[in-house]
Design a protein around this nucleic acid. Structure first.
Length: 586
RNA sequence: GCGGGAGUAGUUCAGCUGGUUAGAACGCUGCCCUGUCACGGCAGAGGCCGCGGGUUCGAAUCCCGUCUCUCGCGCCA
């Protein structure tokens, strides 16, 4: 028998019991003739004690940290002054009678019993040790809790969990695919799914009504702090006979509850549902991004009319040429030193802008380099109140919006305006169906080509393609894009037309999406869904800035697994079997 | 592919505008220690200063190249 109790279980109720514990040596404190071992398992820590009168004393003092022991002994009460309130088991300790070394540990490449930061390379190579450490261990347990909660909530709401193929076909749109060579069909390749998009739609067409999956997704794209290379997981779901609002109503309570039940402490507020719905054009206009962080109180306003025809020629001449002026009102800048404004101006130049002009209103007068160029009427249009400032951005609409978004974020960070104790959800809706490819000047899908255009066939036939909106939406939390989703296009004739506008012929479409198109011809229910990213949800709830901190075995930025040595070279024989010949690119 | 940051002991880091013996902490080894819980004390071992060139009387330090890690851009329907 390895254990009668776990390392978090023993307390004052167990006094004088003979118990057996198994676990890792967290720390040893050797006092010469008295020695303490903190024994750790998944559940907690128990202090075990032995003194020189035990014949094992000599041996036990030579143990290394992280060796695995089975300890048997008697639970004894600690004297009042030696009680440790930081431990669940801090009222007692186990007086060691016997122990067995179940597994020895060599000298550690990184310490397990401390929380100090360590380099990624060593942490990834010895991931099993890193996973023993407090932070990562609890992050992975949190991940399990979140996924378990999601499963239960989705099941309770009538969603059915499916598994879909991992070896499937390459999809022509979207990210780069991971490819797997076929042995039986030489020269042909499977692709790992970027998402089970078509399969979930096919399951709706198959009449299962509501689908979900904690779905692995594979995209061969370069990594970011919030984007692990290779693979990630989505709460992928899809529903039949639904409008956009039905989809929102279905998933909002799930997200709200998952966040509210797994947040780090009770001071954190989760925005209640229904979440804000912000049209794409508005979020670009007021936040300068398609993933606004609503914890940031700053908002972008338009001041083009103020500067139009003004004496501030830098702006007014650009306005003549079609530029706009955006501005951000910042409260309580009255006591900011001049250097605050200069630093922002320098930052703006580093970002490639001409500068960052501003007007402040203090002591009942307008200040700043721009103010003297405006007359009283123009200044009054600014609606500035005492101690506030406005920062101005002048550029072509799109550039002005995007840069204003950066300024908004920068000022918020510099002035520490973010409410760190909240999760603010919103939906971004009414994405454009198409956009212009800047390089080729051709019309292309701006998001998922399977989305239903708003106005359906009539819109496709009569409207300017760039004015057509799609039933396409993103859910955003604290500036993190959790997922995108859509009401799907379930009518083949609209699909043909939608692809036609993006330059795909009927034949192209039939070749690339034959399975899907075929299915739509045999009775497809209107359907739609979304797919919030699990890793990012855990990241937000664990308050981690990097996605690797919530994945048990992540790859590094270069898409390598330093512990398993992946990717690796393959024997010549295996390549031959697959009909693959390597090219030396050098 | 491009730009920023980093690379010094097993590990985390310090090391100034170049100056002779490259430090600290944790870990490790040995000795001491019966109430610690990040135990404590004493002593010790441990370094191709990422790698390769260059400048210099002299380079961890300056320059060039290169590799690795990381953050961002591109990419991510």
């Amino acid at each position: 028998m390895y254990r009668t109790h776990l390392c978090n279980q023993l307390n004052i109720q167990n006094l004088e019991e003979k118990v057996i514990l198994s676990g890792w040596v967290d720390t040893i404190r050797d006092h010469g003739n008295l020695l303490f071992i903190d024994l750790r398992d998944n559940f907690g820590i128990t202090q075990c004690v032995i003194d020189g009168s035990n014949k094992l004393f000599e041996k036990i003092s030579n143990l290394n940290n992280e060796s695995v022991l089975r300890i048997s002994g008697i639970v004894v009460k600690r004297s009042d002054e030696t009680i440790n309130k930081n431990l669940h088991t801090g009222d007692i300790e186990v007086k060691i009678e016997e122990y067995e070394l179940l597994s020895n540990s060599d000298i550690l490449p990184l310490p397990v019993n401390s929380d100090i930061e360590y380099g990624e390379e060593i942490r990834l190579k010895y991931r099993f040790l890193d996973l023993r450490r407090n932070k990562l261990h609890s992050n992975i347990l949190l991940r399990n809790k979140i996924i378990t909660d999601i499963r239960k909530k989705m099941n309770d709401r009538g969603f059915i969990e499916f598994q879909t193929p991992i070896l499937t076909s390459s999809s022509p749109e979207g990210a780069r695919d991971y490819l797997v060579p076929s042995r039986i069909h030489q020269g042909k390749f499977y692709a790992l799914p970027q998402a089970p998009q078509q399969f979930k739609q096919l399951l709706m067409i198959a009449g299962f009504d509501k689908y979900f999956q904690i779905a692995p997704c594979f995209r061969d794209e370069d990594s970011r702090a919030d984007r692990s290379p290779g693979e990630f997981y989505q709460l992928d779901f899809e529903m039949s006979f639904v409008t956009q609002e039905d989809v929102f109503n279905a998933i909002e309570p799930v997200l709200f509850e998952v966040f509210n039940e797994n947040k780090k402490n009770d001071d954190i507020k989760v925005s209640p549902y229904p979440f804000k719905r912000i049209p794409y054009n508005d979020t670009m206009e007021f936040y300068g991004t398609d993933k606004p962080d609503l914890r940031n109180p700053l908002k972008i306003e338009d001041y083009t009319t103020v500067f139009k025809g003004s004496n501030f020629k830098i702006f007014s001449s650009q306005i003549e040429k079609g530029s706009v002026v955006k501005g951000i009102i910042v409260k309580n800048t009255g006591d900011q030193p001049r250097s605050f404004f200069d630093k922002l101006n320098n930052w703006a130049r580093e970002e490639g802008a001409a500068g960052l002009g501003y007007i402040s209103f203090t002591d009942n007068s307008f200040k700043g380099p721009i103010a003297k160029n405006l007359n009283d009427d123009q200044l009054s249009l600014l609606k500035l109140t005492e101690n506030d400032s406005i920062f101005f951005i002048c550029d072509k609409l799109k550039e002005a919006q995007l840069f204003s978004g950066k300024v908004r974020e920068k000022i918020c960070n510099d002035l520490n305006l973010l409410d760190k104790n909240s999760f603010e959800f919103c939906w971004i809706v009414d994405f454009p169906m198409y956009e212009i490819d800047e390089k080729t000047n051709k019309i292309q899908f701006s998001h998922n080509p399977f989305s239903m255009p708003q106005g359906e066939m009539e819109a496709l036939e009569k409207k300017d393609p760039l004015d057509i909106k799609a039933y396409q939406y993103d859910i955003v939390c604290n500036g993190v894009e959790l997922s995108s989703g859509a009401i799907r296009n379930h009518k083949p004739e609209i699909m043909y037309k939608a692809f036609d506008i993006a330059g795909y012929s009927k034949e192209d479409l039939e070749k690339k999406f034959s399975g899907m198109l075929n299915a739509l011809k045999f009775g497809a229910p209107p359907h739609g869904g979304s797919a919030p990213g699990i890793d990012r949800i855990v990241m937000l709830l664990a308050d981690e800035p990097n996605i690797r901190e919530v994945i048990a075995f992540p790859m590094n930025q270069q898409a390598m697994d330093l512990m398993m040595n992946a990717p690796a070279s393959i024997d010549k024989e295996r390549l031959e079997e697959l009909g693959i010949k390597l090219i030396d690119k050098n």
